[in-house]
Simulated assay, not measured.
Amino acid sequence: MDSSTSVLRLKVNIDEPRWDQSTYWGRAKHFFSITNPLNILATKQELEKARNIVQTYRSGGDVGQLTVDELWKAKELYDSAYHPDTGEKMMVIGRMSSQVPMNMTITGFMMTFYKTTPGVVFWQWVNQSFNAIVNYTNRSGDSPLTNTQLGTSYVLATGGALVTALGLNSLVKTAPPLIGRWVPFAAVAAANCINIPLMRLREIQEGVPVSDINGNRLGNSKRAAERGIALVTLSRIGMAAPGMVFTPIVMNALEKRGFLSRYPWSAAPIQLALLGVCLTFATPMCCALFSQRASISVSNLDAELQEEIKKLPNPPTVVYYNKGL
Rank of each mutant, 00 (worst) to 15 (best):
L8V: 14
N13A: 10
N13M: 03
P17M: 09
R18S: 04
Y24K: 05
W25C: 04
G26S: 10
R27F: 12
F31V: 12
P37E: 03
L41D: 08
K44P: 03
E46I: 02
A50T: 02
N52H: 14
Q55S: 09
T56Y: 02
T56R: 00
S59R: 11
S59L: 06
G61A: 02
Q65H: 08
L66G: 08
K73Q: 13
K73L: 06
A74D: 01
L77T: 15
S80N: 08
D85C: 03
D85Q: 05
G87E: 08
R95V: 07
S97R: 07
S98L: 07
Q99L: 12
T107I: 11
M110K: 02
M111S: 05
Y114C: 05
K115S: 14
G119T: 15
W125V: 14
W125D: 09
N127D: 10
V134M: 10
Y136M: 06
T137A: 13
N138H: 08
G141A: 09
N147T: 14
T148K: 06
L150M: 15
G160E: 04
G167N: 00
G167E: 00
S170A: 13
L171Y: 13
T174V: 11
A175L: 05
A175T: 13
G180S: 00
F185Y: 15
V188Q: 07
A190I: 12
L198K: 04
L198C: 06
L198E: 04
R202V: 01
V208L: 07
P209G: 00
V210T: 02
D212I: 03
R217Q: 15
G219Q: 00
K222C: 15
R227C: 04
G228Q: 00
I229C: 00
L231V: 07
V232M: 09
V232G: 12
G238A: 11
G238D: 07
A240C: 14
G243T: 14
V245P: 11
T247A: 10
M251V: 12
L254F: 07
G258D: 07
F259C: 06
L260V: 03
S266N: 03
S266T: 11
A267F: 12
A268S: 09
Q271M: 11
A273P: 06
G276Q: 10
V277T: 14
V277Q: 08
L279G: 13
L279E: 15
F281C: 05
A282M: 12
A282Q: 14
C286N: 05
C286L: 08
C287G: 03
C287K: 05
Q292W: 07
Q292C: 05
R293G: 06
S295A: 15
S297R: 11
S299I: 12
D302V: 00
L305S: 01
L305V: 02
L312V: 12
P315M: 04
P316Y: 03
L325M: 12
